[in-house]
């Protein structure tokens, strides 16, 4: 195994430990702290949406016309239906744009 691949293994192990820390952390926290300060709770509450948005917005702006249109279509679907349907419809949209229209 070369060094670069070994680094990936370390990365996965670190990600696994980080995930386990979140799943064990709340238990430790609740037995130590009585209450989480409201501003801290508000900040923590915003973490996942804030992080995930940074993976969506730049892809929409810099990903090209075909990606942007299929994301818009998927967005419309996502307001009513599941993530799985968003993926299917968004995928169909990008395939049509790439192979039929362009």
């Amino acid at each position: 195994m070369d060094a670069q691949h070994l680094n990936l293994i370390y990365l996965i192990v670190a990600a696994a430990l980080a995930t386990f820390a979140t799943r064990f952390g709340g238990y430790v926290l609740i037995t130590q702290l009585k209450r989480i300060p409201p501003r801290l709770e508000a900040a923590l509450n915003a973490v996942p949406a804030a992080v995930l948005t940074t993976l969506v917005a730049p892809a929409f702006v810099y990903g090209g016309f075909d990606v942007a249109v299929s994301m818009l279509v998927a967005f419309a679907i996502g307001m009513r239906f599941s993530t799985l349907r968003m993926l299917v419809v968004g995928w169909v949209a990008v395939m049509v744009i790439r192979h039929v229209i362009l």
Partner: peptide
């Protein structure tokens, strides 16, 4: 068309919040 799936998946997660 595999490359659009990740941004759409993340978009779905964002909408879930």
């Amino acid at each position: 068309g595999l490359d659009v799936l990740l941004p759409i998946y993340f978009l779905g997660l964002v909408l879930g919040f």
